[in-house]
């Protein structure tokens, strides 16, 4: 049985964009291409400003993903939790769509009695464990993020540890913005292991503008257009029917 691929962008930032297109619009564009956008806002000591918070929530909302604002210390736990939760959410969405086709348009998971829900959830769990996952990590390295970069590195290594414990394959790519020359710069190309990160990270210099929107737009082009999310359903159609 061949499984489809889940695609996610994980944006790690600490505030507002100030250059180029609206990142919320770019996130909506990503969603249209079957790519989920999750955002993690990293705090220093105090609170994040209101507009930054709104943008973080807005990007995740229009990108079909999850947002979470945390202190740098909790980053490891949060990064892996957000990624897993977003995976489940996406898969749940796929399964829900499938359910609607079988049971009618007005039926959602909540309309099933708890006993049946358990069976559906087992399918979602099983898929989450075995599906292929591509995560493009997009790190804001402007200004105040500089001091948080070591923590971000730790959190990403921790994420690869969590995801590589799954049965399914993972591929990671790491991009930073702003880049040395353009809006965005690739520092790690698609790889199943994130260990390379340790060597690349110390070279980073941060500063300048925060082109979150353009960075998102360019990141989208790095996903291979081989399989869409829809194919995930097609591939597993027999599987769903068989197990329900």
């Amino acid at each position: 049985m061949r499984k489809g691929t889940l695609r996610q962008i994980l944006l790690i930032t600490d505030g507002c964009s100030n250059h180029g297109e609206d990142p919320i619009a770019m996130a909506a564009l990503a969603k249209e291409q079957g790519i989920t956008v999750n955002v993690i806002g990293v705090l220093d000591q105090d609170t994040i400003d209101e507009s930054g918070l709104r943008e973080i929530e807005g990007i995740a909302l229009s990108g079909g993903g999850i947002s979470q604002v945390v202190y740098a210390k909790q980053l490891s736990q949060t990064v892996q939790m957000v990624t897993r939760k977003a995976m489940t959410q996406t898969l749940q969405g796929v399964v829900n769509k499938e359910l609607k086709q079988i049971l009618g348009p007005d039926v959602s998971l909540e309309d099933l009695p708890p006993e049946k829900r358990g069976e559906v959830m087992e399918v979602v769990d099983e898929l989450g464990e075995t599906v292929e996952l591509e995560v493009l990590i997009l790190i804001d390295t402007s200004g105040s993020m500089k001091t948080k970069l070591p923590t971000v590195k730790e959190a990403l290594l921790d994420l690869s540890l969590s995801l590589n414990a799954r049965i399914g394959d993972n591929r990671f790519a790491v991009f930073v913005f702003p880049g040395k020359r353009g809006n965005v710069e690739k520092i790690v190309d698609w790889t199943p292991k994130m260990e390379e990160l340790s060597t690349v990270f110390p070279k980073l210099t941060s500063g300048g503008l925060t082109p979150t929107g353009p960075a998102l737009r360019e990141a989208l082009t790095y996903f291979e257009r081989k399989r869409s999310l829809r194919s995930l359903i097609r591939d597993d159609e027999s599987y769903f029917e068989g197990s329900m």
Binding site: T88, Q92, L109, E110, P114, R117, G118, V120, M121, E122, V124, D125
Partner: peptide, 13 residues
């Protein structure tokens, strides 16, 4: 969180 509840119930069962 409906998913979490359902997962836990599955395990308890």
């Amino acid at each position: 969180n409906s998913e979490a509840v359902t997962s836990e119930v599955n395990v308890l069962r």
